[in-house]
Nucleic acid binder design. Structure first.
Lengths: 140, 140
DNA sequence: TTGGTAATGTTATATGATTACACAATTGCG
DNA sequence: CGCAATTGTGTAATCATATAACATTACCAA
């Protein structure tokens, strides 16, 4: 159907050592992490330089296992059920607790595409990041 | 109606010296500029340190005269007709020529709000940045 | 086995943004 | 006016994010 989706099925075993270590940190974190935070946490595993983290992150993002949050300069493990199949995604970012949730809404994707197309713009990639209060923090 | 919209009407005359200089650079640029690019261009006007730029940018963004593009770490002058009245905005960013256009679509705002609300999320601010090819570059 | 590709390690540097502190200009008000 | 509060400015240092350049190692495939 889609002409450029990921046909990867990278389970953890297929990752390289550095990729696994970085993925491990992101998976066990309950929110987004900056590259340098990941670096610090992996120093005891032999990491010495930012590039070790950034290279792993590049691949993990490419595989669709990790998302980059532009408005935070941080990275988060993908929590969607079919991580490698979803297309356009929006993120909600709670300004109080820092928690990030993914929203996958085909209608939104269509809406954005149509909106862009109306001005002759060919849409390649959407960044949608919503700031506010999550359900729990909104009650406070 | 809205409880925190801008009631400012800052015409250029009301800006401070540094704010005017920064605004001048952004207005005359035909695309987004990074804070350090602005700094370099204003050195001949006496600018010496990043903070002079960032402080001016903070105010200009607050006034609604300038937008920050999260995915570029750059800033662009607002080109919308009623710069201080529009609410939610999406940006198209051409990956070839770097040109940025603003889209102001109330339906999109509603859609995002509804999407967030469906998970109990209280939306404060939306970041929507669309990457792709502008009309001119798309023809190539 | 040999040659190419991908991954890694290391140093240095580029780029983006803020903290801390001192001082000057402007505004508001008694 | 005279004074205080606020806002704007200047400067240095530092923190935070990301990439360039180059050498080496691991792995896979002909």
């Amino acid at each position: 159907m889609s002409d450029h989706h990921h046909d990867h099925h990278h389970d953890t075993a297929a990752l390289t050592k550095n990729q696994s270590l970085v993925m491990g940190q992101l998976s066990s974190a309950n929110g987004p992490l900056s590259a340098y935070t990941i670096l610090d946490r992996l120093r005891e595993h032999g990491f010495r330089a930012p590039l070790q983290v950034y290279r792993a992150l590049d691949k993990l993002v490419e595989f669709g296992m990790v998302h980059r949050l532009e408005s935070l300069n941080a990275f988060v493990a993908c929590r969607q059920p079919g991580c490698d199949t979803h297309e356009t995604i929006a993120f909600t970012i709670c300004e109080t607790c820092g928690q990030v949730a993914e929203l996958s809404d085909p209608e939104l994707a269509d809406h954005l595409k149509a909106l862009a197309a109306a001005t002759g713009f060919v849409l390649k990639k959407s960044t949608v990041e919503l700031r506010g209060l999550c359900r729990a923090c909104g009650r406070a």
